[in-house]
């Protein structure tokens, strides 16, 4: 059983192209300067269509999470985190925290994180790992 992979749409293609290029891409409103996620061709705050795509810093903090203990053959055999991170630019996104034990002791709210990428065939997913000091 394979991991559930996204099927990009015209409105989100730039995000997935960015991941393939090892870049986390966000969008920002040209009028109100709001950064937002998930991708869409207009600003969710003010409705302007004048939006730009930019490369985000990849820095984030751990906002909230669970550690799933139910069987998920597509996610491996061990308990795994499902997390929401808060990006340095403001928006939050769902991800998995990788590169550390999947335990409450290792996963501390507000800990600094940085983006990392892993490819699954044609799709590259963004994950987050503890930031290097």
């Amino acid at each position: 059983m394979d991991r559930a992979l996204p099927q990009p749409t015209p409105e989100t293609q730039h995000f997935w192209d960015g991941c393939a290029a090892q870049e986390l891409r966000l969008q920002r409103c040209g009028e109100c300067q709001d950064s937002y996620f998930p991708p869409r061709p207009f600003c969710p705050k003010c409705g302007s269509r004048q939006v730009e795509i930019y490369r985000a810093s990849g820095k984030a903090t751990l906002y909230s999470y669970v550690i799933n203990h139910r069987p998920r053959p597509d996610m491996g055999t061990e308990p795994h985190s499902i997390a929401v991170v808060e990006l340095a630019e403001g928006p939050r996104m769902m991800t998995n925290i990788v590169g550390c034990p999947q335990t409450p002791e290792a996963l501390v709210l507000d800990m600094p994180l940085e983006v990392t990428f892993e490819s699954f065939g044609a799709i590259t997913l963004p994950f987050f790992k503890p930031a290097e000091a």
């Binding site: 991991r3 559930a4 992979l5 996204p6 099927q7 990009p8 749409t9 989100t12 996620f37 998930p38 909230s64 999470y65 669970v66 799933n68 139910r70 998920r72 597509d74 996610m75 795994h80 499902i82 997390a83 929401v84 996104m93 769902m94 991800t95 998995n96 709210l109 799709i123 997913l125």
Partner: peptide, 26 residues
């Protein structure tokens, strides 16, 4: 898989209520 959930949540193992409804709680 082309919905917003399908693209930006489900790839991380989020599919059923016990791993979704619980996310904000910590």
């Amino acid at each position: 898989p082309s919905s917003l959930m399908g693209q930006f949540e489900m790839p991380y193992g989020v599919t059923s209520p016990p791993t979704m409804f619980t996310i904000p709680v910590l």
